[in-house]
Simulated scan of single mutants.
Amino acid sequence: MSLTSLRERLVERLAPASAWRPDGPPMRSDFDLNPGAPRPGRTLRPAAVLVPIIARPEGATVLMTRRSDSLASHTGQIAFPGGRLDPGEDAVQAALREAQEEVALDSAAVEVLGVADGYETVTGFMVTPVVGWLVEPPVVSPSPDEVAEVFEVPWDFLMDPTNHRRDFYDPETGPRRWFWAMPWRERYIWGATAAIVRALRARLYGDEAEPAAAVDEDAA
């Protein structure tokens, strides 16, 4: 296993945080699997999530949350810490602030390695994934108003495409909606969170002749 190679790959393949722009176009979206769905013209609201990668000696993990059942939207869903940008914030500042507010993650413990592909949600947000590196397992405390649970998922599970599947649901009106899902144990990782993970894998390993071997080198 080589945490060093994983960190080096992240630094090499991610965009530097300084390259982020508030008007940057999304590279991925909820519409990728649903090209026929209505896509209204609109100004996307900027948001950011933190993808916290924990460099555990036994293998890298990614910190995720399960949203509180009392929230007005996306109740109970698996997510990265994050939310919309406050006035004057950039993506990194927003992601770190939201992680502090949601799970009491100390910003000083996070080394920001870069930003991944911007993601457009069907709800009208342009989400910037900010990738952070933690050399020690963090002490976290979920805010009960926002987060029901904090947990870690192995990096090699998330990067294995055999764990990525296309699921769907049929809304009361309109066409069937497809989305990415990555069920892990009793948790159902899906939607934008799963799509951001899949896009991150493509950015890191998409041009490798043997991507599975490269993933193994980084996090097996």
Rank of each mutant, 00 (worst) to 15 (best):
L3T: 00
R9I: 00
R13D: 06
S18L: 10
A19D: 13
P22H: 02
P22I: 03
D23S: 11
R28W: 08
F31S: 06
F31H: 11
P35K: 02
P35F: 05
A37L: 12
A37M: 11
G41D: 13
R42W: 06
A48M: 01
L50D: 05
V51T: 03
V51D: 01
I53P: 06
E58L: 09
T61C: 13
T65N: 14
S70H: 15
S70Q: 12
H74A: 11
Q77H: 10
Q77P: 03
G83E: 02
G83H: 02
L85C: 08
D86N: 06
P87G: 06
P87F: 01
Q93M: 09
A94F: 01
L96A: 07
Q100E: 13
Q100V: 02
A108F: 02
A108M: 01
A108I: 00
V112R: 05
G114P: 02
T121A: 14
T123D: 15
F125S: 13
V127F: 03
P129C: 12
V130T: 03
V130E: 01
L134T: 06
L134F: 08
L134C: 10
V140F: 11
S141E: 13
P144K: 00
D145H: 14
V147H: 07
V147N: 09
A148D: 08
V150K: 03
F151N: 04
E152Q: 13
P154E: 08
P154F: 08
F157Y: 14
F157I: 05
L158G: 02
T162I: 14
N163P: 04
H164V: 09
R165E: 09
D170L: 15
D170Q: 14
E172V: 15
P175F: 04
R177I: 14
R177D: 07
W178E: 13
M182E: 13
R187G: 13
W190T: 15
T193F: 03
A199C: 07
L200A: 11
A202F: 11
A209D: 14
A209R: 11
A212Q: 13
A212L: 11
A214F: 04
D218Q: 07
A219N: 08
